[in-house]
C-alpha cells in the first residue's frame, strides 16, 4: 500500500532481522550557534523498543527529530554526521523527506489531533499519499485496531477528534501515524500530558507494537524507560553517556553519571 517516493527511493530489500534500523554515526546538531547534540554514535535495533532518556534540555527530543528530519521545519537548525536508515544516509539533502516520513511515524508530547473528525485524522496520511477512497475505510479500521482504540471510537468516527479524552487523543495520534504503514514509530514523551491510567494503556500498547514496528521512545521518566524498553540510551547535555540493554543499564550502570541520574541526582 505504500506508494513509493519519487526522487530517491529507499531500497526495500534489507529486512534482515539482525541489521539495525538506524545506524547513527557521529551525529552533531546545532540550533544557530548553540550545539545541542555532540558526536552521538549508536545503533537502533529493528522491532525493539529503544528508550532515549535524560534530563530536560539534554537533546533527546532533538535526537528524535533528526531521525525523521522534522528538525528542518525550524529555521537555523543544522545536523552533521551520518544517520543510516535502510542503506541510505538520511541526512543527505537528496533524500526525499516525504518518502522518509511516510516510513517513520511520529507521536508527540502533547496529543495533537487535527481539528477534523476521528476518521479524517487517521485517513490524513493515506490521503495525502494518494490512497484511493474505497481503501481508506479498511486502513483506518486497521490502524485504529492497532492503536487499541477501535472499540471506543467505532461509533463516533465522524465526531470531532477533540471530543475524545486526552488518552484517547494520544492513541488516535498513534493510529494516525500507523495508518501510513510505517516501519518505525518515534514517540516524543508520549505520556507526559496524560494521567496514570492513560499512561499505562499507552505503555501496554508500546509493548505490543514492537512486534511489528521499531519503536524509539523519548522519556524523562526512568520507570517508563525501564518498563517498556529493550535498550536505553542516556543523554546528558547533548552527549551520549551510556547505551546498553535496559536491564543492564538500570542494574549495572558503567558510567558514574548514569548512576547519579538513576539515583535522582539530576533533573
Amino acid at each position: 500500500m505504500v506508494v513509493q517516493g519519487q526522487m530517491v527511493q529507499l531500497s526495500q530489500d534489507i529486512r534482515d532481522e539482525g541489521a539495525p534500523a538506524f545506524q547513527v554515526r557521529d551525529l552533531s546538531f546545532f540550533y544557530g550557534k548553540e550545539q545541542v547534540l555532540k558526536g552521538i554514535t549508536l545503533d537502533i535495533p529493528k522491532r525493539k523498543v529503544t528508550a532515549i532518556m535524560g534530563p530536560s534540555g539534554c537533546g533527546k527530543s532533538t535526537f528524535l527529530r533528526v531521525l525523521n528530519r522534522l528538525y528542518e521545519i525550524v529555521p537555523g537548525a543544522r545536523a552533521t554526521g551520518e544517520v543510516w536508515f535502510d542503506g541510505r544516509n538520511i541526512l543527505d539533502p537528496r533524500v526525499d523527506v516525504v518518502g522518509l516520513r511516510r516510513r517513520i511515524g511520529m507521536v508527540f508530547q502533547k496529543p495533537n489531533p487535527f481539528p477534523k473528525s476521528v476518521f479524517d485524522n487517521v485517513a490524513y496520511g493515506p490521503r495525502i499519499h494518494g490512497v484511493r477512497r474505497r481503501e481508506l475505510k479498511a486502513i483506518v479500521e486497521r490502524a485504529l485496531r492497532q492503536a487499541a482504540l477501535w472499540d471506543e471510537v467505532k461509533d463516533k468516527l465522524h465526531k470531532s477528534a477533540f471530543d475524545l479524552s486526552g488518552g484517547q487523543q494520544q492513541r488516535l495520534c498513534i493510529a494516525r501515524a500507523l495508518a501510513t504503514s510505517p516501519e518505525v514509530l518515534l514517540m516524543d514523551e508520549p505520556t507526559s500530558a496524560l494521567d496514570p491510567a492513560a499512561t499505562a494503556r499507552i505503555e501496554g500498547l508500546v509493548r505490543t507494537l514492537k512486534e511489528d514496528f521499531t519503536v524509539v521512545i523519548v522519556t524523562h521518566n526512568l520507570q517508563q524507560a525501564a518498563r517498556v524498553s529493550d535498550h536505553t540510551a542516556f543523554l546528558l547535555l547533548g552527549e551520549l553517556v551510556e547505551y546498553a540493554p535496559t536491564e543492564e543499564l538500570f542494574t549495572r550502570p558503567k558510567d558514574p553519571r548514569t548512576e547519579a541520574y538513576l539515583a535522582g541526582r539530576f533533573s
Partner: peptide, 13 residues
C-alpha cells in the same frame, strides 16, 4: 505549531 508538526511527520509536503 503542533498541527504543522503532526502533518509534516506524516510525510505531508
Amino acid at each position: 505549531q503542533e498541527f504543522r508538526e503532526g502533518a509534516y511527520a506524516l510525510g505531508a509536503t
